[in-house]
Simulated scan of single mutants.
Amino acid sequence: MIKPLKKAVLPVAGLGTRFLPATKAMPKEMLPVVDRPLIQYAIDEAREAGIEEFCLITGRGKDSLIDYFDIAFELETTLRERGKTAALEALSPSGIQAGSLVAVRQQEPLGLGHAIWCARSFIGNDPFAILLPDDIVKSKRGCVAQLVDAYNQTGGNVVAVTEVPQEHTNRYGILDIGADDGRLVEVKGLVEKPDPKDAPSNLSIIGRYVLTPDVMTHLSKLERGAGGEVQLTDAMAKMIGHVPFHGLRYEGQRYDCGDKAGFLEAQIAFSIDRPDLGASVKEFLKKYV
């Protein structure tokens, strides 16, 4: 029997150095795309997929991420007294049911694999999703919901994948693939940031995963990989052949909001689709393009 997916881990301990000085005093994940912070997009996508429990892997200076999902009594009381119903409604997505959000500190920046290992008590013996808030996927059906559909079909591990230029394979975790039906691909191997000439394909993992708790057995060894860090890709690779492992060509457009150009592109893409902003954004863009 395939165990239902109800948990998600969101690694948010990074320093956000590419966005300094904006991230000097605020977490990168609180940077807004239009009027919602990156962390909100990730939580909303997870909720759409039926996920009910969330674990933030934080670091020093990241407490505002936890505060964001708390009740803001003073603000809400003031808005209510002033009859600001639209503003109150805008706050509602930032609410999370009591007891369903936990935070764990990653005390040293030892890589994504180490961050996931820090969530071992939260994960327990359950399957879980991983969402990297730097990646926003604009789609009719959320990327994680698509992964859950595939997971319910295949069981095991399912990762979201997309094709990248061959010369950029050294930036990503790359799949060595077997059977391929055009949507789901069998994963035969994983290589972290291979040189383009050595890359087994150009199918890259993006920041969306559904994994079984077996991965924690390998992460617990805290073995260092590329960059001297504990790599999640290395631990996942050791599961191949022991549990079903597939890559899903998801439907939608991914924006890399950990990159300045990608972040700006996301602002435009999401604002153009807004009924209250689309026309004016298209109009002012004509001045610059």
Rank of each mutant, 00 (worst) to 15 (best):
I2A: 07
I2E: 12
L5E: 01
K6E: 04
A8W: 01
A8Q: 02
L10D: 05
L10S: 03
L15V: 02
T17F: 09
L20R: 14
L20W: 12
K28A: 09
M30P: 11
L31Q: 06
L31G: 05
D35C: 07
D35W: 13
D35A: 08
P37W: 07
L38N: 07
I39F: 00
I39C: 01
Q40H: 08
Q40F: 01
I43Y: 00
D44L: 10
A46W: 01
E52R: 07
C55Q: 05
R60E: 11
R60I: 03
K62F: 08
D63L: 05
S64R: 08
L65K: 00
L65C: 03
D67F: 12
Y68G: 01
Y68A: 09
I71L: 15
A72L: 14
E74Q: 15
E76H: 09
L79Y: 14
R80Q: 13
E81W: 11
L88T: 09
P93R: 05
S94V: 07
Q97T: 12
V102E: 07
A103F: 14
A103L: 12
Q107V: 11
E108N: 13
G113V: 00
G113Y: 00
I116D: 01
A119Y: 03
S121Y: 11
S121P: 12
I123C: 08
I123H: 07
N125T: 06
F128A: 02
A129L: 03
D134Q: 07
K138H: 12
K140C: 08
R141E: 15
G142V: 08
G142I: 06
A145C: 06
Q146N: 03
Y151F: 13
N152V: 08
Q153I: 11
G155E: 05
V158N: 00
V158A: 02
V161M: 02
T162A: 10
N170E: 13
A179E: 15
D180P: 06
G182Y: 12
V187K: 00
K188D: 15
G189L: 09
G189F: 10
G189V: 15
L190T: 14
L190Q: 12
V191K: 00
K193E: 13
D195H: 15
D195K: 12
P196E: 10
P200T: 08
S201Y: 11
N202F: 14
S204E: 04
G207V: 01
P213D: 13
L219F: 13
A226E: 11
G228W: 04
A235S: 04
M236W: 11
G241N: 08
G241A: 06
V243F: 02
F245M: 03
G247L: 03
G247A: 05
L248F: 00
L248C: 00
R249G: 00
R249C: 02
E251A: 06
D256P: 06
G258A: 08
D259R: 10
A261P: 14
F263Y: 12
L264R: 03
A266N: 02
A266C: 11
A266H: 06
A269L: 07
A269N: 02
D273C: 10
R274Q: 06
P275Y: 07
D276A: 05
L277D: 04
A279K: 15
V281C: 05
K282S: 10
K286G: 08
